[in-house]
């Protein structure tokens, strides 16, 4: 779900930069204690590395996207974390593009924040298996919302990309399922072995 350079109209990618700059500045200067910055970064590195793990899918394999995990584990800091991961993916592995860093951060980062809200609210409900359920929901929702934003970009960019949307949606259906299962298992596991890890690490 990393849009490369050369596809989108300037209106879309410039707006992406504007939104990303505003949100990042807000989170990093208002919501992050400078002392927390190294910790947020090291968790970002873990997200980056986890997204290098390949999951077999039919004849090929896919990388995990894990923007939902960013939300669950980092709260608001998930947005700058997604941005940093995208910058590094573009520069180190040429996934995505340079002009599209901003819009890609919006496509993946806003759903990460939604996943955070969903997980935080859901796990307050005292039902059994709530971590698995809401971890999975957060993971799947983060991808689904990402696909939605991605499609909206293609739709509004005016480069005759509307016909691509059905392909994008279909290609991501298995990814939604995969991330739902992976994050459900993950959240349940972490809640069992280190319950404070799911609460303890969110900047105010």
């Amino acid at each position: 779900m990393h849009i490369s350079d050369g596809v989108l109209s300037p209106q879309v990618w410039v707006s992406g930069y504007v939104v990303t700059a505003a949100l990042t500045a807000y989170v990093l200067t208002r919501k992050t204690d400078i002392a927390e910055l190294p910790k947020v970064s090291i968790v970002t590195a873990a997200l980056f590395v986890a997204s290098l793990i390949r999951i077999p899918l039919g004849p090929t394999s896919v990388h995990l996207i894990l923007n939902g995990l960013a939300g669950i584990t980092l709260g608001l800091s998930a947005f700058p974390a997604v941005l940093v991961a995208l910058i590094l993916q573009a520069l180190l592995f040429q996934h995505g593009g340079i002009s599209t860093i901003g819009i890609n951060a919006v496509i993946l980062g806003l759903p990460a924040l939604a996943a955070y809200g969903l997980f935080a609210a859901g796990t307050r409900i005292g039902i059994r298996g709530r971590y698995a359920i809401f971890g999975g929901l957060a993971g799947g929702t983060a991808i689904a919302l990402g696909v939605l934003f991605f499609s909206l970009c293609l739709l509004t960019t005016g480069e005759h990309l509307e016909d691509v949307i059905p392909f994008v949606v279909v290609a991501h259906l298995p990814v939604i399922a995969i991330e739902t299962i992976v994050l459900g298992a993950l959240a349940q596991f972490v809640a069992r072995v280190s319950p404070q890890a799911l609460r303890g690490f969110r900047p105010r």
């Binding site: 190294p38 986890a50 793990i53 299962i181 992976v182 298992a185 993950l186 959240a187 072995v193």
Partner: peptide, 29 residues
Amino acid sequence: GMNIRTLITTGKLIGMLFVRTLERAERVY
């Protein structure tokens, strides 16, 4: 292999990575 087990195991693996990373983050700090 391509099955649910793989996904669950991967989830636990990443969960473990995350827990260890938090501990490491604390030590680095």
